[in-house]
């Protein structure tokens, strides 16, 4: 029953976040609002880690599985991207390499090249 009890909290926070996002017409999606609410509750110790950890672990351990239907949706739009999939692939690869380099270089410029801690 532990999972069910924790599901009430996590699913409930998601509902609340979604409701806030839609009611206030925010550009920030409801699931992110929910995530920030949970983070705030944990940080302020209003909610203990043990009260949500099992359900959160279940959801995150199986995260990849939950994306299958969203990916399968490609079936209904395949005709639209048939001619451009190679461009899409190329853009993804190039921009990822650029982002990785830029982020790493910036972090190193700010942190210094040597890292003594964290071992």
């Amino acid at each position: 029953m532990k999972l069910f009890r924790q599901a009430i909290i996590i699913f409930g926070i998601y509902l609340l976040g979604d409701w806030i996002s839609k009611t206030l017409h925010w550009m920030v999606p409801g699931n992110i609002v929910g995530m920030l609410i949970l983070l705030g509750l944990l940080y302020s110790k209003m909610l203990k880690l043990e009260q949500v950890e099992a359900m959160a672990g279940f959801l995150l351990d199986h995260l990849a599985f939950f994306f299958i239907p969203a990916g399968v949706g490609i079936l209904s739009i395949y005709a639209g991207i048939q001619g451009i999939w190679l461009k899409l692939l190329l853009i993804c690869v190039i921009t990822t390499a650029i982002t990785m380099t830029a982020t790493g270089k910036m972090a190193e410029a700010l942190l210094g090249r040597n890292n003594r801690q964290g071992e």
């Binding site: 409801g30 929910g34 995530m35 983070l39 940080y43 995150l60 995260l63 969203a70 949706g73």
Partner: peptide, 29 residues
């Protein structure tokens, strides 16, 4: 038909919202 698949698929998809909320846990740690 993809609609036929989605009858069940939408139940799996539904978990994504709460799963995002759960991302707060590793972030907090």
């Amino acid at each position: 038909d993809i609609e036929t698949y989605n009858q069940g698929g939408q139940f799996i998809h539904m978990f994504l919202g709460p799963a995002t909320v759960a991302l707060a846990v590793p972030l907090y740690k």
